[in-house]
Design a protein around this nucleic acid. Structure first.
Lengths: 341, 341
DNA sequence: AAAATTATTCAAAGCGCTTTGGAAACAACA
DNA sequence: TGTTGTTTCCAAAGCGCTTTGAATAATTTT
């Protein structure tokens, strides 16, 4: 059943039926009710393809798989994606995925998506400090939102968490507990969030008059192996230079740290203080660590849901200022932190 | 630049230009070359929306997030999805995602996708033995392919791995090494793959004249905690009834088993033999276990790539028999298995 | 009661592609 | 010469929706 048939049934024009169904004000409530009833009765569903052609809008949002894949990255991306898909389907939007493959560069993926005009907007995740994608998309005329922030001359819409504030709070807590040798195991420095976190970390220690030892700051993949090897290295330092506290960019890293400590007979929350950032995945994480982990935490699924709302809002009101939000991050104190002893 | 403008430029009809670009035979090679050159020159890209409307095909494949989410499940799904997206984009297809949310049942998600006619076919993953989706989709007239198999009266296309053969090989290896008390930690029994695996497992032991002890077979979530608790329980049995070998449905489960063994001072590959199924994720897995794990392995990313090919083939030749493939599974023997003793 | 508003409804023109049913041009055959 | 085939190309009719510009009906104003 299509629009023409339905309007013929009703003895109305396509215009009126279309407007009645789409909530335009210039159709009487009586007619609207009649149209709705008939549409329900016949199970009428407007053709997405026809609407796309007529409106020029695809009702579709695009995401692209991150170029470098790893376990945690995939988990985070999937959790984020799941949130996006959930909210998008509530808003009657589709989500389509792109991916670089083989010789095709990531840029080509974005170009392809834009050229084919298959999406109304794209959502960028894991932005680098110097990320080429905003400039590219703006040049191509494709609206976008960033999950995170980036260093960019041009304006852009974004949703980010307060990474700096989070790591400021974590480092400050440790400093207030008397720790002066605090190590930071950060994510890859090319990512904007990692820079933000390091800034917050440094600011807190400096505020407490603690000189930041560059040797205690490292960055790398946010996986168990990184935490293990880096912690091992630092724990081998002479006792008076060995860190008494660690701040980790992910729970995976914290697991590695814990293993390194265990190997030295050091107990988390007893001999060594540990804080990690916890991107809530499947509503579980830091609290099921042993001991329960003091953590800065934030739901990446919620971020996905919210960024889709912002994105759709942006598409509906193109002339409005670009949406931007920065979410505060909770520092939840659990059993992995204690005063320095 | 649209088709009309391009054909005006060329002094040809839209028909001819369209056919030239789409490789129809009734246009001379000379004209085709001219058209191609002009299209390239002007950067002409056909509008996906218009094509969709005209052909009734959306050029889109649909997948739905599994209803129950967990870490391994997400990782597997993402790996599979990544493969799908990769091949789909090579074939100029899009992949869109659906997801049940809140009150909306999984069935509603499929209905919605079909009603809106936004996808040409759907790919079903993690089929249950009694899965309602094939009947639903057939009734709705939506083509689909299953990654896995199911117990269904109606025919369906599928790509599956030989789960039965894999677990047959694993159990047979253990039997041949002299193990007679072999435990199986299977996935949820509602899933078809779990039933297949158990069948293979039993068949091998029976073939070797070993009575299968039902107490040694359990099933549950394919996560570390399951392996840990189940193995712990079995390792507490009196020595003459305690299993000497374990077959696990995932590496996660194997990790749990290893921890349970370690707690009892039992070494994998020494005191206890261990085999797990390894869905290759990120090209790593069983070989980085300690000790390297004897495993049945199969690439889930490859499966994603292939199922998209089959799906697209099915759409292109709707009257051809439904495609189906069963992939053999390699049993790779590493250090976690040894003769009983 | 006529004129001016306002509230409803409609006919028709796209959106940009595919595809049907010829037609024109040309060569090959009788 | 007339007929039959081939090749190559085209005009025009959709696909099913949105939206513009007008027309009609109902209401209010003068």
């Amino acid at each position: 059943m299509n629009l023409r048939e339905l309007s013929a049934q009703l003895g109305l024009s396509q215009t009126t039926v279309s407007r009645a169904l789409n909530g335009f004000p210039e159709v009487s409530e009586e007619t609207r009710a009649r149209v709705r009833a008939a549409a329900d009765l016949h199970g009428y569903r407007p053709s997405a393809a026809a609407r796309r052609l007529a409106t020029g809008q695809s009702g579709t949002l695009g995401l692209v798989f991150p170029g470098e894949r790893n376990m945690l990255g995939d988990l985070l991306f999937t959790e984020f994606l799941g949130g996006c898909v959930e909210r998008a389907s509530q808003l009657n939007y589709d989500v389509t995925l792109g991916m670089a493959h083989g010789s095709q560069s990531e840029e080509a993926v974005y170009r392809r998506a834009v050229r084919n005009a298959r999406v109304d907007a794209m959502i960028l995740s894991s932005p680098l400090i110097a990320d080429p994608r905003p400039a590219l998309l703006r040049q191509l005329g494709m609206p976008f939102m960033i999950h995170g922030r980036t260093q960019s001359a041009e304006p852009y819409g974004f949703l980010d968490i307060d990474n700096e504030g989070a790591f400021f709070a974590a480092a400050k807590l440790l400093a207030d507990l008397g720790h002066s040798r605090v190590a930071l195991f950060n994510g890859e420095t090319a990512f904007n969030f990692a820079a933000d976190r390091e800034r917050g970390f440094r600011r807190a220690l400096e505020m407490r008059g603690i000189a930041v030892d560059p040797g205690l700051i490292s960055s790398g993949a946010m996986i168990e192996a990184s935490g293990l090897s880096q912690a091992k290295r630092l724990l081998e330092l002479p006792k008076d230079r060995r860190p008494t506290a660690f701040v980790c960019s992910s729970i995976g890293v914290a697991i590695g740290v814990k293993r390194a400590c265990a190997a030295q007979g050091l107990g988390i929350g007893k001999d060594i203080a540990l804080i990690a950032h916890d991107d809530r995945i499947h509503d579980m994480g830091a609290e099921s660590f042993d001991p329960p982990l003091t953590a800065t935490q934030s739901s990446i699924g919620d971020a996905g849901r919210r960024i889709v709302e912002l994105c759709v809002g942006m598409l509906r009101e193109p002339q409005a200022p670009l949406p931007s939000e920065v979410w505060p991050v909770d520092l939840v104190v659990r059993g992995s932190t204690m005063p320095v002893g």
